[in-house]
Simulated scan of single mutants.
Amino acid sequence: MEEGISKEDLRQFGISLLKAVRDLVQPGIESSKPDTEPEWLKSRAVRKLLDISPGTLQNLRINGKVRFRKVLGSYYYNKPDLMELFSENKN
């Protein structure tokens, strides 16, 4: 099942596009805004990042390995939790 483009996806794209335009118009000037990288990632992004199946991601969710939120039928996962999971698995 394919996931469509959500309003959040479009918002993130708009933020990155606006930053790119600012950088072109005002080269060398750092943006005063904090990093716009999302703190919460959709299931598809997590599966791609971790190279795991939907079932494995579900097991991580069920076992409480990562925090998640369900919004309008889509699961979002906490990026810092995922990065912590990476560092634990590497040691």
Rank of each mutant, 00 (worst) to 15 (best):
residue 28 G to S: 06
residue 29 I to N: 11
residue 29 I to F: 14
residue 29 I to G: 07
residue 30 E to I: 04
residue 30 E to G: 11
residue 31 S to Y: 09
residue 32 S to A: 15
residue 32 S to F: 14
residue 33 K to A: 15
residue 33 K to Y: 15
residue 34 P to V: 07
residue 34 P to Q: 09
residue 36 T to F: 09
residue 37 E to Y: 12
residue 37 E to P: 05
residue 38 P to C: 09
residue 38 P to T: 11
residue 38 P to R: 13
residue 39 E to H: 11
residue 40 W to S: 07
residue 40 W to D: 05
residue 41 L to K: 08
residue 41 L to Q: 06
residue 43 S to C: 03
residue 44 R to S: 10
residue 44 R to E: 11
residue 45 A to W: 02
residue 47 R to N: 05
residue 48 K to T: 00
residue 50 L to D: 02
residue 51 D to S: 07
residue 51 D to A: 03
residue 52 I to L: 02
residue 52 I to S: 01
residue 52 I to F: 02
residue 53 S to Q: 09
residue 56 T to L: 00
residue 57 L to Q: 04
residue 59 N to A: 15
residue 59 N to H: 15
residue 60 L to R: 06
residue 60 L to V: 01
residue 60 L to S: 03
residue 62 I to V: 13
residue 62 I to K: 12
residue 64 G to S: 05
residue 66 V to I: 11
residue 67 R to F: 05
residue 68 F to R: 11
residue 69 R to F: 12
residue 69 R to Q: 15
residue 69 R to T: 10
residue 70 K to F: 08
residue 71 V to N: 13
residue 71 V to S: 11
residue 71 V to I: 14
residue 72 L to T: 11
residue 73 G to Q: 04
residue 73 G to K: 03
residue 74 S to W: 13
residue 75 Y to T: 04
residue 76 Y to G: 08
residue 77 Y to P: 02
residue 78 N to G: 03
residue 79 K to D: 02
residue 79 K to M: 05
residue 80 P to E: 01
residue 82 L to H: 03
residue 83 M to A: 02
residue 84 E to D: 08
residue 84 E to M: 08
residue 84 E to H: 10
residue 86 F to M: 08
residue 89 N to E: 10
residue 89 N to Y: 09
